[in-house]
C-alpha cells in the first residue's frame, strides 16, 4: 500500500517555512503588565484625599508610599507621576488605610502611625534628610541647620533645603516643619509659603509666634527649673511661650548663662 499516491498534493518544505514565518504575533492581554508589576511589587496605585490644603493624590506601591502631590485632576497627577518616575500609576480600588486618612485630614496625629515609604531612586543623603524630618513632632518646627547637624553633615544646610524640596511624599514626611533659623517660614514645594503656614497653623505650631520670636532675634528659650534651653516650639509652643522662659539669642549666650541643650529637641550638640 502506498498511501502517498492518494494525497491530493504534497506540501513543500518552503511553503511550510513561509507559512510559519507568517504566523501573526499575538497581542498580550492588557491585564498582563499590571499583573506582573503587582506580583513583583512594582505597581503603583493612588488615592485622592482631602487635606487642609485641598485635595491631594497619594500613590503607593508594595514598597510603600511613593508620591504625595497636589494636582488639578487625576489625569494631571498621573502625568506628574509618570514624569517623575517613568512608570505608570493607576487608581486604587481599595479604600486607603485609616492611618493615612486621619493623618491627611488633620495632620496633627497623636499616634504617629508608622508608614512605609517607597524612596527608591533617592540618594543616601536625601533619604537621611527625609528620615530626620520624620522625627519632628507635630506642633513643632526645626531649622534646616538642625537636620544638617543631626545627620552629621553640618555644612550641608543648602543641600538639606534642596533634598526637602524634592521630598516625594510631603505631608506624610513633614518637610513643612522645617523652617529657617531666623524664624522665617521659608519655602514649600507643595504650594509655597502660604500652604506651609496653613499646615503649621492646623498642627498648632503658631507660625506667627515663631516669626515674631525670630524677628526679635530669639533662637532659644531657657527653662529655669532644669537649666536647659530649647527650640521655641519644643513640647508645643503654647506651654513654652506662656510659661516663664528666658530668651537666648544664641547657643553661646545660653551656655554662658549656665544652660545646657535640651535632650528632647537637641538645639545644639551636647558638650
Amino acid at each position: 500500500m502506498k498511501p502517498q499516491s492518494t494525497y491530493p498534493r504534497r506540501v513543500s518544505s518552503l511553503a511550510v517555512l513561509q507559512a510559519l514565518r507568517r504566523f501573526p504575533e499575538e497581542k498580550a492581554p492588557a491585564t498582563l503588565l499590571p499583573a506582573v508589576l503587582q506580583r513583583v511589587g512594582l505597581a503603583d496605585t493612588y488615592w485622592r484625599l482631602e487635606s487642609p490644603i485641598g485635595p491631594v493624590y497619594i500613590a503607593h506601591s508594595r514598597a510603600g508610599i511613593s508620591m504625595v502631590s497636589r494636582a488639578k485632576s487625576s489625569a494631571q497627577f498621573e502625568r506628574n507621576f509618570a514624569k517623575r518616575y517613568g512608570r505608570a500609576v493607576h487608581p486604587e480600588t481599595a479604600a486607603p488605610p485609616a492611618a493615612i486618612r486621619t493623618l491627611i485630614r488633620r495632620l496633627r496625629s497623636g499616634e504617629r502611625p508608622k508608614l512605609q515609604f517607597d524612596l527608591r531612586g533617592l540618594s543616601e543623603f536625601e533619604r537621611a534628610v527625609l528620615m530626620k524630618a520624620l522625627e519632628i513632632p507635630d506642633g513643632e518646627v526645626r531649622p534646616y541647620t538642625w537636620i544638617a547637624r543631626e545627620i552629621g553633615r553640618p555644612e550641608a544646610v543648602r543641600a538639606v533645603g534642596t533634598a526637602l524640596g524634592k521630598n516625594p511624599v510631603p505631608l506624610l514626611i513633614p518637610c513643612h516643619r522645617v523652617v529657617r533659623s531666623d524664624g522665617r517660614i521659608g519655602q514649600y514645594s507643595m504650594g509655597g509659603t502660604r500652604n506651609k503656614r496653613t499646615l503649621l497653623t492646623v498642627e498648632g505650631a503658631h507660625p506667627e509666634t515663631i516669626e515674631r520670636l525670630g524677628g526679635r532675634g530669639i533662637r532659644f528659650l531657657g527653662n529655669e527649673k532644669g537649666h536647659s534651653f530649647c527650640y521655641p516650639t519644643c513640647g508645643g509652643i503654647e506651654t513654652l511661650v506662656q510659661s516663664n522662659k528666658i530668651a537666648f539669642r544664641s547657643e553661646r549666650e545660653a551656655r554662658r548663662a549656665g544652660y545646657h541643650p535640651c535632650q528632647q529637641c537637641r538645639p545644639a550638640m551636647a558638650s
Binding site: 504575533e25 497581542k27 498580550a28 492581554p29 498582563l32 503588565l33 508589576l37 518616575y85 512608570r87
Partner: peptide, 15 residues
C-alpha cells in the same frame, strides 16, 4: 526603574 519597560517591550513576543 526599568523593569516595566522590559515587560512592555517583550510582552507580545513572550505571550
Amino acid at each position: 526603574g526599568c523593569f516595566e519597560q522590559l515587560v512592555s517591550h517583550y510582552q507580545d513576543r513572550l505571550y
